[in-house]
Nucleic acid binder design. Sequence first.
RNA 1: GGUCCGUUCGUCUAGCCAGGUCAGGACGCCAGGUUUUCAUCCUGGUAACACGGGUUCAAAUCCCGUACGGACUACCA
Length: 477
Amino acid sequence: MSEVRVRFAPSPTGYLHVGNARTAILNWLFARHSGGKMILRIEDTDAERSTVEFEQTLLQDLAWLGVDWDEGPDKGGNFGPYRQSERLGIYQKYAHQLLETGKAFHCYCTKEEIEARGKAALARREDPHYDGHCYYLTEEHVEQYKKEGRKPVIRFRVHPGEISFSDLVRKNVQFDGSHISDFVILRSDSTATYNFAVVIDDALMKISHVIRGEDHLSNTPKQVLLFKAFGFDVPVFVHIPMILGEDRAKLSKRHGDNQVRDYREKGYLPEAMFNFLSLLGWSSPSGEELLSRQRFIEEFDFSRLSKSAAIFNSEKLDWMNGWYLRNSDIDYILDLGLPFLKKSGFDISDREAIKKCVRAVIERIDRLEQLPDWCRLIYAGEIKYDNEEIVFNEGSQKVFIRFLSEIENISQWDKDAFLQVVKTVQKETGIKGRFLWMPIRIALTGKEHGPELPVIVELLGLENCRKLIKKALKKQG
RNA sequence: GGUCCGUUCGUCUAGCCAGGUCAGGACGCCAGGUUUUCAUCCUGGUAACACGGGUUCAAAUCCCGUACGGACUACCA
């Protein structure tokens, strides 16, 4: 079997979409699983919408996900160039080859004319296909059109007849040429259309497996026809199911966040994103759902790809992200979390102090963007009590008085010392359970919920604890 | 309209190709346990084969039809 070569071919017309990210991941997984090559190709033949900035962000987002490539615009390779805008001459050469062999023809019809005739056909309940208007143009006609200033496109001629190809997900798929219109392969400005460029590139770049979204399934017969017209080997196709929004419609701008960048900015980890996206349409034979990149590579197999579209379930993503947050190296989490704290105005110069804080609150968040809110309550500052009643009731005040006198002359202040103090307070006041702990918690953090108290106490330090307890006392009366 | 693809718990899915398990797991949700509280963590529970015909001793699984959903039908990709 020849070498496995797959490609991810995004258009630089926006940020990396989660659907495309999943496509990229599946391509990458297959390449790495089979020891093949991953090729990154930029499909920027739509000059109107493509920008170099978007190409850059696309590359960054892929890298963030941990998807790398062996050949691409920034890496080079033996099958370049890897930007379609730099391959225009190649497409023109091949298009003219089809012209010469009579498999394609010049068409001088304007968009308006085509549209009008299409509508008319529809009115007659016929397929609104290209009607063959320019199949047999006389020299005079051509001259006339040229005089009018018309620039021709090159159309590929589609003949009736069965077109079938194998798809590793859908098995054998068949179309009939009679339902496919003669399509444009070279525009009037001599640039190639998507269906043409993709075939030339996939053939010339020796792509063995075309792994892409199911929305391309209907384009495939056109491409198969082109592969055959040139005598190229037809690659194996793998059309993966779509990702849908909560309303079952194709994921789009209407659904809010759907770009990889959105998730990154909210504090989702690349590992979680990778894991979650990989599991949309693929499953491990083990049934496990928390898998390392290595496991994914080892186990990846097209036979386990699902056929049906998947809804993007953000609750599950949150759960998964929380899991990665709690099961990754704390320094790694800290590196990713620091920017979020900095943005919220935290002084992040004392890394060790912040680390303790992050370690304490990591149990209760599932996105890094939630870090600042939880860390805030570990920093002594202006405190607003969630529940004043608990702070100012008689029992609580007794606890505070006793607590304060216990820490009056204490020298060592850590978790154990704190626990010891609370124990003593309990013995002396006879107050226990939530009536003992809750007042202390609210006095120190202002909140009824939070990380373990001993951890908080240690982070606050003795002086802050004194200050906060005093404050809870003073308020009375 | 036409062509093609799809349809298992609310969601992601296993099982389907090589018919025969109470249709399994995960998220969510609910209950219990752990915890000073919340969260984490542990245990248990809830809930699905779109519908109708066939084929068969037996169908989620094979065949046909219907419904629903999606994609494509551009000089976008």
